[in-house]
Write a protein that binds this DNA or RNA. Structure first.
Length: 428
RNA sequence: UCCUCGAUAGCUCAAUGGUAGAGCACGCGGCUGUUAACCGCGGGGUUGUAGGUUCGAGUCCUACUCGAGGAGCCA
């Protein structure tokens, strides 16, 4: 018999179907049994009476998370959560599960994290992962439709892109190599080759960060476009974020509902996003009673205060040169600040995008490398991009997990990725 | 690295310094519409580790281990 996905049951009312899945839960009262089965696409309840002795006996054997084939007739049922039920004719166990460690009652974070490989079977975790997949798909769709070419950046790199942060070091057959913390410098090269490009891959930061916003390994989608200035860059980002939100609202209603996400907060995300300068943001913080001096970098609480002032994500642009990366282009109208812009998500989720316009002048870039005490030899190829047909160009990087956490309304980033890599935790 | 909090049954949690408890899970029995089903019975513990105070420590003190949240750094 051809298997049917639970999500498609509405197309098969009155028909005999076969569901292939796992037993999520079972309730029985002597002469009637209810089998709640999940198949990854959804959850459905099967009903069977003891008069069907073979099926009833098979159902009695099933333990939580046992795998099975469930055959029966689809019936519309207003009392059922998904709107449909199956009148079971046959229960065919595939594998009887041993005593399942994750009961349907509440569990602590430590317990669940140790069993992440099983935790992801639960409805909320599975919904988050489906939304994550939709976000990633929507991002690629957006770039494809806007003539951006996917150009993968290397994972193993010879030197720090930004020098300041800690990298994971690897042995590259006798040489030192590092796991990438950003594809950006390579993106600048591929943008000069292909015009508009993006890369999408894992990123590694060896900092000993231990907060609900940090992973040691996370996924970042980074775009770079030749002839884009800082304003073109921000427009691209807001188009992208709005596109992703629209796709998720359109395709993941059930998942958002399952997560009890306040959808009105996502529907409130509208173009154009507010744009405020760093200087204005400092004034905003001071007005809110924060002791904050011009020149300091924002901490998480500051980002929350700024983000909470708006319903949509907000761009903060023109940061002090001293607190930003070496490649940031100074503002011609005020050399103390750079044409960088970060995007802060609302509801306290903080920075989800960092980006800006890059230095296109060879002499200035050489000067910055020296100021930041970066090894010039490692950057010769990067300097070549300014020697041979330099153009104004801009780009940005969007953190996937922070975006997933925001859209899903999660209180911790660890649930936004199948297998989070946290400080001192890499099992499973 | 620093600050704060925590660790008791498989899980989630109780227990004035005075006999170690409940719910869930599991096993057995009952129940024809259950929604984390329900009812009855049952097994289940070196209270994170080491030391100290005390007639007596799950409870108070010290150190350590592990975990959680936050700071710094950033997406």
């Amino acid at each position: 018999m051809t298997p049917t996905l639970i999500k498609n049951l509405s197309r098969h009312v009155g028909e005999e179907v076969e569901i292939r899945g796992w037993l999520f839960n079972k309730r029985s009262s002597g002469k009637i049994a209810f089998l709640i089965v999940r198949d990854g696409s959804g959850v459905v309840q099967g009903v069977l009476l003891k008069t069907n002795e073979t099926a009833f006996a098979a159902a009695e054997m099933l333990t939580q998370e046992s795998s099975l084939y469930l055959r029966g007739t689809v019936r519309a049922e207003p009392r059922a959560t998904g709107g449909y039920e199956i009148d079971v004719t046959q229960v065919i166990p595939v594998s009887i599960a041993g005593e399942y460690p994750i009961s349907l009652k509440e569990h602590g974070v430590e317990f669940l994290a140790e069993r992440r490989h099983l935790w992801i079977r639960t409805p909320k975790q599975a919904a988050i992962l489906r939304i994550r997949a939709e976000i990633e798909f929507a991002l690629r769709e957006f770039f494809y439709r806007n003539d951006f070419v996917l150009a993968d950046a290397p994972i193993i790199t010879p030197a720090a892109c930004e020098g300041t942060t800690n990298l994971f070091e690897i042995d590259y057959h006798g040489d030192k190599g590092y796991l990438s913390q950003s594809g950006q410098l390579y993106n600048e090269a591929t943008a000069a080759a292909l015009g508009r490009i993006y890369c999408f891959g894992p990123t590694f930061r060896a900092e000993k960060s231990k907060t609900r916003r940090h992973l040691l390994e996370f996924w970042m989608i980074e775009a770079e476009a030749a002839f884009f200035d800082v304003d073109d860059n921000m427009r691209l980002q807001e188009d992208m974020v709005v596109y992703v939100i629209e796709r998720v609202l359109e395709r993941c209603r059930n998942e958002l509902k399952l997560l009890e996400r306040d959808i009105s907060k996502l529907e409130a995300v509208k173009k154009p996003f507010p744009r405020i300068s760093y200087t204005d943001a400092v004034a905003l913080l001071n007005k809110a009673g924060e002791a904050f001096e011009w020149g300091d970098d924002f901490g998480a609480p500051h980002e929350t205060i700024i983000g909470n002032h708006f319903d949509s994500p907000v761009f903060v642009h023109r940061y002090p040169t001293a607190i930003k990366a070496f490649y940031m282009k100074p503002d011609p109208e005020d050399e103390k600040v750079v044409l960088g812009a970060d995007l802060l998500a609302p509801e306290g989720y903080g920075e989800i995008i960092g980006g800006g316009q890059r230095i296109d002048d060879l002499a200035l870039l050489e000067q910055r490398l020296a100021e930041h005490q970066l090894p010039r030899e490692a950057f010769e190829w990067y300097l070549d991009l300014r020697r041979y047909g330099s153009v104004p160009h801009s780009g940005f990087g969007l953190g996937i997990e922070r975006t997933v956490a925001w859209i899903c309304g999660l209180d911790h980033i660890r649930e936004s990725i199948p297998f989070p890599r946290l400080l001192h935790k890499m099992y499973p």
